[in-house]
């Protein structure tokens, strides 16, 4: 099993996507199917942008094994008041700055949900959010 770990700073739009880019390189080296790789990195990138856009700071934990990839993003931030509502396409609390970067249309979580086999979101208001994304390598 391979373990990777990356830190994310809230508001740091210059480096948003850096971790996703590194994970993409690793998956390519491991010869993971390009279609699966795309689903994994698109989900991770959306989740990474979410942390940069909404949280103060966060950490990404990636576990790659022969049959699955587990990615966990743990952030310290405002949390999500209503996870079901946040999952709805079109619902967004993003700032103008985030929208200027080409995000914030309320598609992120729906996009993540579409691209992962399992998605678990745990959130506590005024504390933070943990997003766990699992992709199976043998099912796809």
């Amino acid at each position: 099993m391979m373990k990777l770990d990356y830190k994310i700073e809230g508001g740091d739009f210059t480096n948003a996507g850096h971790a996703s880019s590194e994970v993409k390189k690793v998956l390519k080296k491991l010869n993971v199917d390009p279609k699966i790789t795309r689903r994994v990195v698109v989900s991770l990138y959306e989740a990474e942008v979410n942390v940069v856009a909404h949280a103060y700071r966060g950490e990404i934990f990636v576990e790659i094994s022969t049959n699955k990839i587990i990615i966990k993003l743990v952030d310290e931030g405002p949390g999500i008041h209503n996870v079901d509502q946040a999952m709805e396409e079109g619902y967004s609390t993003a700032s103008e700055e985030v929208r200027q970067m080409g995000f914030g249309a309320g598609m992120g979580l729906a996009n993540i949900n579409k691209n992962t086999d399992e998605l678990n979101i745990y959130s506590e208001v005024n504390k933070g959010t943990t997003v766990e994304m699992i992709t199976y390598l043998d099912k796809n």
Binding site: V42, G102, N111
Partner: peptide, 8 residues
């Protein structure tokens, strides 16, 4: 211009 759209 919407990157989330491109990501689909």
């Amino acid at each position: 211009d919407l990157m989330s759209d491109v990501l689909t």
